[in-house]
Simulated assay, not measured.
Amino acid sequence: MSAGHAQTTLRHSARAVVLDGHHRTLLCRHVAPGPTRPVAVWAAPGGGVEPGESVLAALCRELREEVGLALDADPPQVWHQEVVGLGGPAGHAGVVNDYFLVRAASFRRRGAMTDDELTADDIAGFRWWTLPGIAAHRGPDLFSPRDLATPPALLIAGGVPADPVPPGL
């Protein structure tokens, strides 16, 4: 692939909005180098779709690897997000995130990845967040999407949309 082509491609990722019975959502804390200090972002578990892999297969693989969650049915896709620029993945102009709603009982993360493998993937931790906790958070950590409290609240109140909707930035 030429350097010019790499700059115009978007990395495709599959992510899970994991909600437990108390409407808490499981998030991964990603820490990456920033211009002046590391940047921490809480995001839904998931990751890149490998060449030849379907989005759902990628979602299942990522959930097994990162958090140890095995899906017994195909979850509904609820959000579709395209982010161009904003410091996208290396070699890509941005990312396409397809989000799927996964309902699960609360569990302790026991993924297949070791701590060293998680660190190599810039993952520094996991936490179950309440939606009010996300909305009230004032620390230096960010959320992806930035207003992460609103889209899950809409899912809880209104159910799964007929077609995937943008979750916001």
Rank of each mutant, 00 (worst) to 15 (best):
R37H: 13
S13M: 12
E62V: 02
D20A: 09
A149Y: 00
G88D: 11
V55M: 07
A124Q: 13
G88Y: 08
L26D: 01
P38C: 06
R61W: 07
V95Q: 13
G87R: 04
W42H: 05
G158V: 05
G91W: 01
L131G: 03
V165N: 07
G68T: 03
D116A: 15
L148H: 02
R127Y: 01
A40E: 04
F126T: 07
A70L: 13
V41I: 15
V95C: 13
W79N: 08
F143E: 02
P35V: 07
V102E: 07
H80R: 13
A6Q: 14
R15V: 03
G168D: 10
E50H: 12
I123G: 04
R110F: 07
A90N: 02
A104F: 00
V41F: 10
E82F: 02
W42V: 04
H92T: 10
G21A: 15
A73T: 15
H12D: 14
L86H: 15
T114G: 12
L59W: 00
W128N: 05
G52H: 04
H5P: 02
C28G: 04
G158L: 11
L71Q: 09
F100L: 09
A16I: 04
A57T: 08
Q81L: 01
T150Q: 11
T9L: 15
V96Y: 09
V78A: 04
L69Y: 03
P161C: 05
P164W: 00
G47P: 08
A149C: 00
P145C: 05
G139N: 01
